[in-house]
């Protein structure tokens, strides 16, 4: 029972990390970044290259990876999205295509199998009342929680964060106070990509670094975002926990190969009963019109 709880929490935080960047970008700029999974794996590959090709130490390589991912997010906005901004279908097609291009490019240069992997931060682990947990999973837990808190502080208490809140709610009104929609849009993609890089360097060491994982990450991120209600951060966290615990329970009682059914089933279920998601925008409160 305790192991179910511990691994449930860890799985939930992992899912939240997958979804964080995707949800943040969508919440601010309305761009559903379907290149998210591609960026995740690309970040892993960049980290690997920095450490193995350039021989940088891990404490330099990982922060640098996050910065590079941020710059790629920027480039994605100015290069591909700027002209089609505000046309949702075009945004989805373009980001999806970019994601596939990244993933297939990585396959093409040989990113599959066990040759590529990222190192864990510290070897070993601890036992919590008989349940073994390795340090890397504790890192995931700790950094996940810290990130969520920092992000909340950032969005609610810094100028840029407040600009994000403004532009997400009413672009034209935000413009009248000097907030720029292109600048915030580009920044939202940069921050989203950087967050996916953080997730990658934390989580990839516990699995394999290959393109198929990118598709999975995208499915998880989209599942969490849809179930929680697009653009609702509390909804996203609740959804992570529901799906995370669901997955661990399924793995334990039915079999781990069924784990991927949980997010897909959750999407289907939520779309059928509550299309705006658990805490989706329209349901949060009845507003005056």
């Amino acid at each position: 029972m305790l192991s179910l709880f511990i691994y449930g929490v860890i799985q939930s935080v992992t899912l939240a990390l997958y979804a964080l960047g995707f949800s943040l970008t969508y919440g601010i700029s309305g761009v559903a970044n379907f290149a998210h999974g591609g960026l995740y794996i690309l970040s892993g590959f960049i980290a690997w290259s920095l450490m193995n090709t350039l021989r940088l130490p891990i404490y330099l390589a990982l922060p640098l990876t996050v910065v590079i991912a941020g710059l790629i997010g920027f480039a994605l906005y100015w290069g591909l999205l700027v002209r089609i901004r505000g046309i949702p279908l075009a945004e989805v097609v373009v980001t999806f295509a970019a994601g596939i291009a990244i993933l297939e490019f990585l396959v093409w240069i040989g990113l599959y199998g066990f040759y590529y992997n990222l190192p864990i931060f510290i070897k070993g682990g601890i036992e919590i009342q008989g349940v073994a947990v390795d340090y890397q999973r504790l890192f995931v837990l700790g950094i996940g929680v810290i990130l969520a808190v920092l992000l909340w502080l950032f969005v609610h208490h810094t100028k840029i964060g407040l600009a994000f809140r403004g532009i997400a709610q009413n672009e034209h009104t935000a413009l009248t106070f000097g907030i720029e929609s292109d600048w915030t849009g580009a920044l939202s993609l940069a921050v989203g990509s950087a967050l996916s890089a953080i997730a990658a360097v934390l989580i990839l060491p516990m699995g394999v670094l290959e393109s198929t994982v990118g598709y999975e990450v995208l499915i998880f991120a989209v599942a969490v975002a849809i179930v929680g209600g697009l653009e609702s951060i509390p909804g996203m966290i609740i959804a992570s926990f529901i799906i995370g615990f669901g997955q661990i329970a399924v793995a334990k009682y039915i079999g781990s190969k069924w784990m991927v059914i949980v997010p897909l089933g959750a999407i289907a279920f939520i779309l059928a009963v509550r299309p705006s998601g658990l805490l989706g925008k329209f349901k949060e409160l009845e507003e005056r019109v």
């Binding site: 407040l162 809140r165 709610q169 009413n170 034209h172 009104t173 106070f177 907030i179 949060e284």
Partner: peptide, 21 residues
Amino acid sequence: RERHPVFRESDVVENLKIAGY
């Protein structure tokens, strides 16, 4: 702007803070 389009999800104080960008 016309018809007072404020930031509806934010409280009064946060609206003023955003406006002070």
